[in-house]
Design a protein around this nucleic acid. Sequence first.
DNA 1: GTGGTCTAGACCACC
DNA 2: GTGGTCTAGACCACG
Lengths: 135, 135, 135, 135
Amino acid sequence: MFFRLDSNNGQPIYEQVLRQIKFAVACEALRPHDLAPSVREVSKSLLINPNTVTRAYRQLQQEGILATVRGTGLAVTEQAPKQCRADRQQLVRQTIRSALAEAFQSGLASEEIRKVTDEELAALKPKGTRASEPR
Amino acid sequence: MFFRLDSNNGQPIYEQVLRQIKFAVACEALRPHDLAPSVREVSKSLLINPNTVTRAYRQLQQEGILATVRGTGLAVTEQAPKQCRADRQQLVRQTIRSALAEAFQSGLASEEIRKVTDEELAALKPKGTRASEPR
Amino acid sequence: MFFRLDSNNGQPIYEQVLRQIKFAVACEALRPHDLAPSVREVSKSLLINPNTVTRAYRQLQQEGILATVRGTGLAVTEQAPKQCRADRQQLVRQTIRSALAEAFQSGLASEEIRKVTDEELAALKPKGTRASEPR
Amino acid sequence: MFFRLDSNNGQPIYEQVLRQIKFAVACEALRPHDLAPSVREVSKSLLINPNTVTRAYRQLQQEGILATVRGTGLAVTEQAPKQCRADRQQLVRQTIRSALAEAFQSGLASEEIRKVTDEELAALKPKGTRASEPR
DNA sequence: GTGGTCTAGACCACC
DNA sequence: GTGGTCTAGACCACG
């Protein structure tokens, strides 16, 4: 597994791990009955404490994304893909909504917000589009 | 003063107070040499701890938005309006940027992000159409 | 608060804490908007690690029983009482069900199970009834 | 052999195996001097790790239920039937006792517990009425 | 004072 | 090897 941590962007590490697992499930990099990478493995490769990984995994269990197979590891559940895809949708929507609401509340007209959003989107796009360019 | 607190939306209370002062300055509800409402007044009307207000005011002093007038209170500085307007711009931009970046990073295509953004903006508009009225 | 820990009965400590909070809510010893005893307080009085308490409290938050009031503590939610009462019912039922199922599966006739259950209930009763006897 | 595993119901697999052997002895499906099914056989038919079966068998030897017959396998001992029947009794009793105790401790009156127990027993009965048939 | 996060390292049961 | 629990102690932001 190839995790990346953005340390110090305000997001707790355990949550970054959690999201990346969900993301992997959403893109079918992890499928039902697959084992998630072991706690020790993740903690070693990311140079973080096993407890931090455990915390992410525990929450994933509570959400029904992972389930323990004793002595074996944590397996992706059958329902996980559906749930993770839904999650991603909702998460993104929520984030955008609150950002826009904040912008709005701070007194900007919606046209201005729109303009800013378009600019930022344009600034972001290149990185993602380049992927389909010939190398 | 016309403050509103969204308790528990993740934003620290002191920061909400801070922003609203800045906002008031940006839209000229507070002008240079006006006195900011007293700590006591704010804390009583918002039912929050005076320390919290103090903290917001302290930071506003550090940023040069407010300045003490001995024996009188905290007054808005001459440079404050310019600074607050700039701040507002930058803050909003930053917030939107990171929200979009997060959306992007979570694997959505920029068209999808665009769509979601437009929907959310439309949902927000009704309440705030007033913002585009002539001033 | 007067918590009791049955150490070494197999139940994790964090879960015992969790249950006792739920129980307190169910009996209205803790009501909505009350603050749960602080992490440090509980950990000191039970001689357990703060993290263990934190874990219980975190789960109570996830279940919507408690909610953080920042810088203040963890408050019982409005919905908590209903939820805790339901929980208790369901928990007990589930425990009994699986015990009986196990008994059944191990080859006992239901009359035998019935007999054993009655005996055990009788053995348990005195402790609870004695409380209303004169001392 | 007619084993069934409830994976992930909280009971260790090795213990489920162990119990089912004991059960087989208790109901005379396995009699003294019979050979217990081989580790290989069991592990293959239940799709579990041979070590897990070995562990169950090791404990059965320690309890004197099984004994090695060199070059042949593990045979049921003479004393086994008596012991297994006693075990079963005690196990069931213990399970029921702790379930009831938990129910009690969680604040229910014994009448309520009684009611719940009866309901659950009734719900269980249909499947197992056979248990009261003459043998 | 409050909770939230993280690290370090221990011990356990299970496979 | 796996996860689960617990301890000890640190640092942070918030009120």
